[in-house]
């Protein structure tokens, strides 16, 4: 089973990211913690590929000091032209708190697009997207790209409770099949998203499938191992604490396999955030 993405090389960024003072077009609150923030950033929106990220900083002060990475959730278009993007955010810290409270007209500094995107597959290969919680973030854009290529797309989507499963109609409207799981059993399978995923893998027989995952790291590991055990390719988007997003600080490293037992650290901002599931040394720490 070959890797789709090679780890690294950590080269120079192309195309060049741009730094945009993006105006908030609207802020849609999905729950008491989740929101979708629409930003006017046409240059980034036009260049972004699904799985890429932007480094975001609301306000100009020292709180927060550093930018934070966010996947590009949706690319917004007017008359077919990309003119904005959205971010899916969960309120957990100072930046996400400010993004939750943002109002139309506010300005958010937005640097991107950055990083290695998902590898889009074409029919007859099926695309299975596996999202945990706010890990839904890269999959709206990826679903649109894949559906435009005629690829069959299924979203395996897990959360704590049904009230935290968002955009279900959005995905249905685009012909994406849904397989849901909630920890409290309020919608779909009771338990983790890997339950419906494993059931589907058992039934998939000889169909060609590419598994895309984004979510908490234990979920990524479980999905990558499960895909490998059913001899399916996987790509996972990791979320690491990032200082710069540009390869300058070496903070966002991920252990990547190096021979049968070894690993080396690769900056996820340049070598990722999307890695082939087989390439990450899940046992490294």
């Amino acid at each position: 089973m070959g890797s789709v993405l090679k780890p690294g090389p950590e080269g120079i960024l192309t195309p060049m990211p741009v730094d945009v003072e993006a105006r908030v077009i609207r802020n849609t609150r999905l729950s008491s913690d989740y929101n979708v923030l629409a930003l006017a950033a046409p240059d980034i929106a036009a260049a972004a590929a699904p799985g890429q990220f932007v480094m975001v900083k609301p306000g100009r002060g020292c709180t927060p000091l550093l930018r934070r990475p966010f996947s590009v959730f949706e690319v917004l278009r007017t008359n077919g032209r990309a003119d904005g993007l959205t971010l899916l955010s969960k309120r957990v810290g100072v930046t996400t708190e400010m993004l939750f409270e943002a109002v139309e007209g506010d300005v958010v500094s937005c640097l991107g697009p950055l990083g290695r995107p998902y590898t889009a597959v074409d029919p007859p290969v099926e695309a299975w997207m596996v999202a945990g919680g706010v890990g839904l973030a890269p999959f709206a854009a990826l679903a649109e790209l894949l559906r435009a290529r005629g690829t069959s797309v299924t979203l395996f989507y897990g959360a704590r409770t049904s009230g935290e499963l968002f955009y279900l109609d959005w995905f249905r409207d685009r012909g994406v099949r849904l397989a849901l799981a909630t920890e409290d059993g309020s919608l779909g399978d009771r338990g983790r998203v890997t339950l419906p995923l494993e059931r589907a893998l058992q039934r998939a027989a000889a169909r060609e499938v590419m598994v895309y995952a984004c979510g908490p790291e234990p979920m990524l590991e479980a999905v990558a191992r499960m895909a490998a055990s059913y001899r399916r390719r996987s790509e996972v988007s990791v979320e690491r604490v990032m200082g710069c997003g540009l390869g300058g600080c070496y903070s966002c490293v991920v252990p990547v396999r190096d021979g049968p037992n070894g690993h080396h650290y690769v900056r996820s901002c340049l070598g990722g955030p999307v890695f082939a599931g087989d390439d990450i040394a899940w046992d490294a720490h």
Binding site: C62, L65, L66, V241, G243, C249, Y250, V253, V254, P255
Partner: peptide
Amino acid sequence: GHPPERIVETPAGMLN
């Protein structure tokens, strides 16, 4: 180098 986490933001600064 060290395993992650390698940085953390602190008031008006960061640790690495």
